[in-house]
């Protein structure tokens, strides 16, 4: 049963996955090309000076891409389910409701994780090709919350979509927006690029917890609790 669910989700989301993956790949490759081009026109020690002391974030183009990806993926995955109440049928299959919801959401999370992993690998390879390992450490701490924001956007959008009461939907959406927004804190010129250096684990914990929101929305949806 669950395998069939995996297969159904795969059929539904594969083109979304390809489209989102392509956008991510293009932006990540753009980061490499931009930096490679900069290194050809500006001396390496000057570029490094800007990276270390002027907080030149050569990878800043990727900043909002994971969050946008999560948002779009959730919309593409759940819109067909909610039109004509298809999800209601799914939730009445002879399998536990929470297992079905968890599986559905896990598929999305894994597909997004695969895309984000490729993004990160490109950023890591780009950084290590041009800069010492210290810059790689700083880059990792800086981009981590941006990828967390991708998962948060996905989980929260899914929960807001499946929710049937508009009041709750608005509360979930606003709270989710505040969470995603908080994950972009502190990245600005001279404000500190590694703003989450001491709080990345807390951010990861809060984002993981948003996985559970869909169970609340799903419960309301199946029973029509407004």
């Amino acid at each position: 049963m669950l395998f069939a669910l995996w297969y159904k989700e795969w059929l539904k989301t594969k083109w979304t996955l390809v489209a989102i993956g392509a956008i991510n790949l293009l932006v990540a490759a753009g980061v490499y090309l931009d930096l490679a081009n900069t290194m050809k026109t500006v001396e390496a020690n000057v570029v490094l000076m800007n990276v270390v002391f002027k907080e030149y974030l050569y990878y800043v183009d990727i900043k909002y891409i994971p969050a946008l990806s999560g948002l779009i993926y959730a919309v593409m995955q759940f819109t067909p389910e909610l039109s004509q109440s298809r999800l209601k049928l799914t939730l009445h299959l002879p399998a536990p409701e929470q297992k079905i919801l968890a599986t559905t959401q896990l598929i999305g999370a894994l597909e997004l994780a695969a895309i984000f992993a490729i993004d990160y690998l490109i950023l890591a390879a780009t950084t290590l090709a041009f800069f010492p390992v210290e810059v790689f450490d700083s880059m990792t701490v800086t981009v981590a919350p941006w990828f967390f924001a991708g998962f948060a956007a996905y989980f929260v959008t899914a929960a807001a979509f499946v929710e049937i009461s508009w009041t709750r939907r608005v509360v979930i959406a606003l709270t989710g927006y505040a969470l995603v927004d908080a994950l972009f804190l502190g990245v600005s010129f001279n404000a500190g690029n590694d703003a989450f250096a001491h709080a990345w684990w807390a951010a990861a914990l809060v984002v993981s917890a948003t996985f559970l929101l869909l169970f609340v929305s799903g419960f309301h949806y199946k029973r029509g609790i407004v």
Partner: peptide, 16 residues
């Protein structure tokens, strides 16, 4: 899980 989800939602609403 649903109970936990509700607690998470309440905590997030209060926090933000």
């Amino acid at each position: 899980l649903r109970r936990l989800g509700k607690t998470v939602l309440a905590a997030l609403v209060v926090l933000f």
